[in-house]
Design a protein around this nucleic acid. Structure first.
Length: 711
DNA sequence: GGGGGCACGGTTTTT
DNA sequence: CCGTGCCCCC
């Protein structure tokens, strides 16, 4: 029975999959088949009848990996994914809180605040308390609050020694009150609230402890203290925790991840089974040797060394440019060569330590007409127009959601100015009610025609929602709110209209995979912000930070900006822990490459308007020299010896790359605007160009639509 | 209410 | 240097 499942696995992987129902820690190196082990373990537990689907809890960090896990499991076994408790920490906590909202002290329709909404809520608190923005920067207060929540501390549990920390604590306390009053929960609240629910309600805790015989955790090195405490609560006497992680890939300490959880787990649970997955199926030998050599400089490690059956492969190519410009030039030319020789451009990644570095590379790519995609911008549900639309839906679902109220009360503008809003806020405070209730009371007064209209609009929506499918709810809301009309009348609103229409599609697909329910849709929108931008899967070069590249792999990787101060970053170079985290980041970066790795640096770089002269990163020195091939040792301007031609793998088909052929300074002709010169650009081949037209002046045009012909 | 002008800050970021 | 956020003026 189990044979078929584990047939493709190596001995360590198979051993992990078939471990008895006891706590286990799997140290899974980069590219060692971690996801396979996790999903096969689940399939094995289910198919051997050791547990029923309801006895399983599998936790991940991102929606992407949760989905991946679900689809792999359902491919192996005929299961209804809906009944499975497989999801993100936040998603699963949300699910529990919805099921037990009364016990958790939350309204049924509680809204989830994302990072920016939380910041907005905190700003309101600070304003209410009269705390000065300069002395109490909202962002810092946000970090303070989240930091405490992630360590399981409510405002009442926080120590304060001086006036300043007492004020911070007061802000936290007031923020808690505000959230409770408005019936909203931020991301860390989902976890903390769920943790408290399980702590304070023994019957509920017992139920889940007995139910979840197997708790599986992915990316365990990224868990924070609260997440670990939550796992500890969920695991009952008879539950087995199967934790998979890689301490060498822990790169999120700055947002609360606590690698120490891996050590604590071993002692807290007297873990008997520790299995190392060290065989790497991704990279060639030289790349792994480099990664091993770099990470061996870290002292805080559980210990692990990757190996492969693959050949040593090519050397790691190093290019040192005189400037960041030249570095970018090199990367682009080299990438073009790879593409010309048959590598799919989506198999090529350009990685950097900080986002600011992407600009110059984008510029070079654009000028060369190479399609590229930058990861990490605004996501679908984070767009302004989508937020407005969701705020209407929230206000329908939960009238006390003051955040939502403030967002839409005068958008589109309907004559409810700051003065009127302030009056509503004062009234609400006086009567201890929600802004919505205050607005309803105020709407009946004289001279409140505009407010009356707003109240009517929301009530009309609320009356119609009942029994309507989600698509029609969204459609109706877009119409009654006036949002669609507003953006249709806006000269620059074209894309926003398209996004609002896309929201209807999102609602339609949502129906097909979940219950038809406004609250569920809103949770989905908050917890899963969607793809970073349209055209996510088009054939294009991939640009992203090293952080964003974790979990991904590419045939060829360009790792740029390998200079002291940048990588490792200045702000982390002071303490040992900081440098070790940067080194793990370097380890992650190197292990993204399958066949070919380029490392580049620049002798001078424009940063904050100043030219900085950099020294090669210590991480470059940590790679054994025999693994490196300097393409331009000693630096001769623009005379690097180009790399040997890339031999395409048999499976990768030749792709013709669509080239728009535009570059800055180029003269172009537009069917309507006539002759002009390209002056700027943004967003790559799917983005826009700025053209200065002789007759019509400067205009931004979408590359994909404007019929621009080079002259 | 929106656009122009100015001051400021500038690692990494999922949920 | 360049993007963001805020204020003021139209």
């Amino acid at each position: 029975m189990s044979h078929a499942l584990t047939a493709k696995l190596n001995p360590q992987q198979a051993a992990a999959v078939e471990l008895p129902a006891e706590h286990a820690l799997i140290l899974a190196g980069a590219g060692s088949g971690k996801t396979s082990v996790l999903t096969t373990r689940i399939a094995w537990l289910l198919s051997t009848g050791q547990i029923s689907p309801s006895g399983l809890l599998a936790v991940t960090f991102t929606n992407k990996s949760a989905k991946e896990m679900l689809s792999r499991i359902t491919a192996m076994l005929p299961l209804n994914p809906r009944g499975l408790w497989v999801g993100t920490f936040h998603g699963l906590c949300n699910r529990m809180l919805r099921l037990h909202h009364r016990d958790a002290g939350l309204p049924e329709a509680f809204a989830i605040l994302d990072q920016s909404e939380q910041l907005g809520a905190i700003k309101r608190v600070l304003k209410f308390l009269g705390l000065d923005d300069d002395k109490y920067p909202p962002r810092a207060v946000q970090n303070y609050i989240n930091g405490h929540k992630e360590n399981g501390r409510r405002a009442g549990d926080v120590d304060a020694f001086d006036d300043y920390s007492r004020q911070l604590r007061l802000a936290y306390e007031e923020y808690e009150k505000q959230c409770n009053r408005e019936g909203v929960a931020d991301f860390s609240e989902l976890l903390l609230r769920c943790y408290e629910l399980l702590t304070h309600k023994p019957e509920i805790r017992k139920h889940y402890q007995e139910r979840f015989a197997h708790v599986l955790v992915d990316e365990f090195q990224d868990t924070n203290r609260l997440q670990y405490a939550w796992l500890k609560l969920l695991a009952g006497k008879n539950s087995a925790i199967f934790a998979v992680g890689d301490d060498d890939q822990s790169i999120y300490a700055f947002r609360g991840a606590n690698v120490g959880n891996m050590v604590d787990f071993q002692s807290d649970f007297s873990v008997k089974h520790v299995i190392r997955l060290e065989q790497n199926y991704r990279s060639h030998g030289n790349i792994l040797d480099a990664a091993n050599a770099v990470i061996s400089n870290n002292t805080q490690r559980l210990g692990k060394e990757l190996w492969t059956q693959a050949s040593a492969g090519e050397p790691i190519r190093v290019f040192e440019g005189a400037s960041d410009f030249e570095e970018a030039q090199f990367i682009v030319e080299e990438a073009q060569t790879l593409i010309r020789d048959g590598m799919a451009s989506s198999e090529i990644a350009i990685l950097y330590r900080s986002n600011a570095q992407s600009r110059i590379i984008e510029h070079a790519l654009f000028s060369a007409g190479v399609p590229y995609r930058v990861y990490g911008g605004l996501r679908f549900f984070e767009r302004q127009e989508i937020k407005h639309a969701l705020a209407y839906l929230r206000l329908i679902a939960n009238p006390s959601d003051d955040n939502a109220f403030l967002r839409v009360v005068n958008f589109p503008t309907r004559g409810i100015g700051l003065k009127s809003v302030e009056a509503i806020v004062d009234r609400a405070r006086l009567e201890g009610c929600s802004l919505w209730q205050a607005a309803c009371a105020g709407a009946s007064g004289r001279g409140a025609v505009a407010l009356g209209k707003f109240v009517h609009i929301i009530e009309a929506m609320r009356n119609q929602v009942e029994g309507l499918p989600m698509t029609e709810v969204v459609d109706m809301m877009l119409d009654l709110s006036g949002l669609l009309t507003h953006y249709k009348n806006d000269k620059e609103g074209e894309e926003r209209v398209a996004n609002l229409e896309e929201l209807i599609n999102a609602a339609a697909t949502f129906i097909s995979e979940d219950e038809n329910n406004l609250i569920a849709f809103l949770s989905h929108a908050s917890l899963e912000a969607g793809d970073h931008q349209a055209g996510a899967h088009e054939e294009a070069l991939q640009l992203m930070t090293v952080h964003a590249a974790k979990g991904l792999e590419f045939h060829a990787v360009f790792l740029s900006g390998l200079e002291e101060g940048l990588f490792p970053h200045d702000n982390s170079a002071n303490d040992k822990a900081g440098v070790e985290e940067e080194r793990r980041l370097m380890y992650v970066a190197i292990t993204r490459a399958r066949q070919r790795l380029y490392i580049s640096l620049a002798q001078s770089r424009m940063l904050h308007g100043q030219t900085r002269y950099g020294v090669a990163s210590r991480f470059l020195d940590e790679i054994p020299q025999e693994l490196l091939k300097y393409l331009n040792r000693g630096y001769a301007p623009s005379s690097y010896s180009s790399a040997a031609a890339y031999v395409p793998p048999a499976a990768s088909p030749k792709k013709s790359t669509p080239e728009h052929g535009l570059s800055i300074g180029m003269k172009v002709e537009h069917p309507k605007f006539g002759l002009g010169v390209v002056t700027d650009h943004e967003g790559g081949a799917t983005g826009n160009v700025q053209v200065n037209f002789a007759q019509f002046g400067s205009k931004w045009l979408a590359v994909a639509y404007a019929k621009l012909k080079p002259v």
